[in-house]
């Protein structure tokens, strides 16, 4: 269904536990924001690109990342050069390249299930404050299932709007879509309650 960008593999990067990768990524993001030296930032960018080679990411995924990056960097570079000068533009763009490619590397090499388990484990200390990390997997599953139901509803509503010749009206689409969304929410709530959700 919504497979995401994950690419199976057996590289050291794939095998590193999701939690460590996530921490490393957060650390890297913090460093990237603090650093002001183009040399260091360039070095980090190079290291991240090396990571793509190490994880043997397919050319297809690399291309996809490069495309997103290309558009964004071109736009930001032009804008910052015009407004703030060349040095600032280079700095901003190096930051974007480092942060975006590292984050995408994480997403490509880590299964969604593993991220969920890692976050569940990471949030465990918060249990004493009423956070219930074991519910995360449930929330993810529930939301994905709702996405498929609502996609179907959205398609039906759009057809109905078309049949009435109102395919260009935002209201003719959004209002019935929302009302059916809310009705679905109430029905889902009842079904969840019937299956013991909310009973302690």
């Amino acid at each position: 269904m919504l497979g995401g960008w994950y690419e199976p593999g057996s590289s050291p990067l794939h095998r590193t536990p999701a939690g460590w990768k996530l921490l490393a990524l957060l650390g890297l993001a913090a460093v990237v924001f603090v650093l002001r030296s183009p040399g260091w930032l360039g070095g980090i960018c190079a290291a991240v690109v090396l990571g793509y080679a190490l994880a043997r990411i397919s050319p297809r995924s690399c291309l996809r990342v490069a495309r997103t990056l290309g558009v964004l960097v071109a736009f930001m570079f032009a804008l910052q050069w015009w407004l703030l000068g060349l040095d600032a533009a280079v700095l901003v763009c190096l930051r974007i390249v480092a942060a975006l490619t590292a984050a995408n590397l994480f997403t490509i090499t880590t299964r969604v299930d593993d991220v969920v388990s890692a976050v569940e484990r990471g949030l465990r200390p918060l249990r004493r404050f009423g956070v219930r990390p074991d519910r995360l997997g449930l929330l993810v599953g529930l939301t994905l299932q709702s996405v498929t139901v609502l996609s179907k509803i959205a398609a039906e509503v759009r057809e109905a709007a078309k049949a009435r010749g109102a395919q260009r009206s935002v209201i003719a689409f959004a209002v019935p879509f929302l009302i059916r969304t809310l009705r679905h929410a109430d029905e889902l709530g009842e079904a969840l309650a019937a299956r013991g959700e909310g009973d302690r």
Binding site: L150, L178, A185, D186, G189, L192, A193
Partner: peptide, 17 residues
């Protein structure tokens, strides 16, 4: 029903998606 609260939250997250 607390489940109705949960359902509305979840379904609206899906709505934004």
């Amino acid at each position: 029903l607390p489940a109705v609260d949960l359902a509305r939250t979840v379904v609206f997250a899906a709505f934004i998606a």
